[in-house]
Amino acid sequence: MEQKSLEKATELLAALLVGDPVEAKNGKNTGLYEAYHESGEVSDALDLMLKKLNLRVYEYNYGLYLAVGEKNRVFGYSNDDLKRIMGLRLNKELYLCYYLIYQAAALFYQDSATYNYREYIKLEDLLEAVNHGLSGMVSELHRFESETPEETSFRALAISWDELPLIANEDTQGVRAGRGSKSGFVKLVFNFMVAQGLFTEVGERYYPTNRMHALIRRYFEEEKGRLYELQLRSSKGGEDGAAY
């Protein structure tokens, strides 16, 4: 392998890791994108390095996007990392944020192949989606007696959501990110997703980025076998399919 190809591949990896966009339309890294496409050596070298680092790269709409593989101890996040980044304190708050992120993605994608042709979502849309998503659980809480549920159960998640007021303060204008209210949580999640390059915000409207499309379409398509197994295992109540 030529030194030059290796050099290009390393450069490409570095750009992907720091989160610089590598797109055909983006001026700065157009050369890198072309090198990946035109030279088999460059793409092979990159794929090899990514494989060893437990990373993946996906192509979508003339751009390359990086995803972190399952159980990546270097580039993956621990619960504590995520809590620190989002400013949360409890695990159940983190799970609630997971759920909000899932609902936000589900507003655009029912599954990894069906795009809902929705241009953007707003804060209220996500609020409503989460309310609906948890309504079954919440109405069950209201209807039947419940013991104190486990922290990692959906019932606990529904309780923490149900106990949050819609907004923190009646008089303040606009919604601020925070842990004190439903809308605060939604805003917090939106801010996090914007920081992660999954959404872009224009005037309180959140548009999914190419990165988001790429990951949803390609990652889950590739990983569906493993995830189904996990799903089956969890529904059988067998081995605990918890994340690392």
């Binding site: 399952e70 759920y99 990692t152 992660q196 995830l227």
Partner: peptide
């Protein structure tokens, strides 16, 4: 009743 499974959906979306 296991919310930790949600991590499998969310974590791949995060940047390194």
């Amino acid at each position: 009743q296991d919310v930790t499974l949600l991590a499998h959906l969310v974590e791949p979306l995060l940047a390194p």
